Each structure stands twice: as C-alpha cells, then as structure tokens.
Simulated scan of single mutants.
Amino acid sequence: MQDLLKDYPSIIEQKIAWGDMDAAQHINNTVYFRYFESGRIAYFDEIGFSDFDQIGPILAETSCRYRIPLIHPDTISIATRIQTDSFYEFGFVMEHVVVSHQHQQIAAKGTSRIVSYDYSKREKAPLPQVLKDKMLACERK
C-alpha cells in the first residue's frame, strides 16, 4: 500500500461509516467527494491556507473516477497532492486518491480545481506567492 501513497505528501486515514452505504450496499458515489474534501482541508491546514476571513481556497470544480466499490467495514487512506504544473495566477489543481486498506487498492481517483478567493471582497484573488511556495515545499517533502 505504501507504493500507492508514496507520491502524496498529505495522507489521512478514516474508517468507513455504515451509514455511508446506499441501497446498492456500497459507499454512495457522493461520499467520495466528502473524502476528497477531508483530504483537501487536511492539506490546507498543514500549509496554513485555511484563513476564511481573508485569502483562502474555494472549490471551483471537482471530478471522481471510481475504480472499486467500498463497503463497511473498511479503513481508507485519503491522499492529496498538488499538480505542480497546474499553477496559474488564481489557483491550481489538486489530485486525490482513496485507498482501501482491506483491498490494498485504489478505490477512487479525483481532482479538485481550487481558486484563491478573497472572502472579504467575495471575489477571486491572485494566489499569494507565499502559499504557492509552501505548497511546493510540501510537495518536495
């Protein structure tokens, strides 16, 4: 499993909740977006990009590719990284993987396009260089 996660600087673990399963008896497709959100927030907390009073992140777009179904009980690792070639003036793209401990496989892969947002002005803002530098440093660890 370490090989599946080796290129991701931010990894969190979580147990799958029984209540996240749907009538098809597997984790509902919408739950994966919450997994990605948890991974994003952990990454942002790590680098200090969580100040929602000033310049902070806002989700502009997200996608998910499902690979294997997840069911309860299982534990997952949610791994997150930045596509370092995706930086532009107002944001960047993150990649996520959800790995099943039971199956030792990637259950889902996804992306999130993040925009730097000025919450006081309610508009996009240039991504501060200091935050970009922190992300690049996080990616090198």
Rank of each mutant, 00 (worst) to 15 (best):
P128F: 04
D133K: 12
I71L: 06
W18P: 00
D51M: 03
S38Y: 07
Y35Q: 01
T30M: 08
V93Y: 05
I82V: 15
D3T: 03
W18A: 04
M135V: 05
A137S: 13
G110I: 01
H96A: 07
Y32G: 03
L70P: 13
K109S: 14
D45C: 02
T30I: 10
A108Y: 11
I11W: 08
A60C: 01
R67M: 14
M135I: 04
I55G: 09
I58M: 13
M21H: 04
D51W: 08
Q104V: 08
I41D: 02
A60F: 00
E37F: 07
F36R: 02
S38H: 11
H72N: 11
D45K: 14
A24L: 15
D133F: 11
V97S: 12
Q83G: 00
K124F: 01
K132Y: 00
I55A: 11
R122D: 06
M1F: 08
E46F: 06
Y88R: 06
M135A: 01
G48V: 09
K124M: 02
Q104L: 10
I71E: 04
V99S: 05
P73Y: 02
F33Y: 15
V130K: 14
R113Q: 14
K134N: 10
T80K: 09
M94A: 04
I82T: 14
Y32N: 04
D74F: 09
Y43M: 15
S10T: 15
G91A: 10
Q2V: 04
Q2W: 03
S112P: 03
D20T: 00
D3V: 01
Q54Y: 08
P126F: 10
I12K: 09
I16E: 08
R34Q: 14
F44C: 07
K141A: 06
A24G: 10
G91L: 03
I11S: 07
H103Y: 13
S77A: 13
M21F: 06
L59I: 15
S50R: 12
D133L: 11
I82D: 00
D118G: 03
I82K: 01
L5M: 11
Q14V: 07
S112C: 13
G39T: 02
L136V: 10
F92T: 10
D51Y: 05
Y117F: 15
I11P: 04
T84E: 05
P73G: 10
E46Y: 07
I12D: 06
I114H: 08
E37L: 08
I11Y: 08
K132D: 03
F52W: 03
L127M: 12
D85G: 13
L5N: 06
Q54W: 04
V115A: 13
A23S: 14
K6V: 06
H103S: 12
M21Q: 15
I55Y: 03
R81I: 09
Y32C: 05
F92P: 09
G19V: 07
I78E: 08
S10I: 14
D51Q: 00
P73T: 10
C138R: 15
R140V: 08
A60N: 05
I47N: 10
S116L: 12
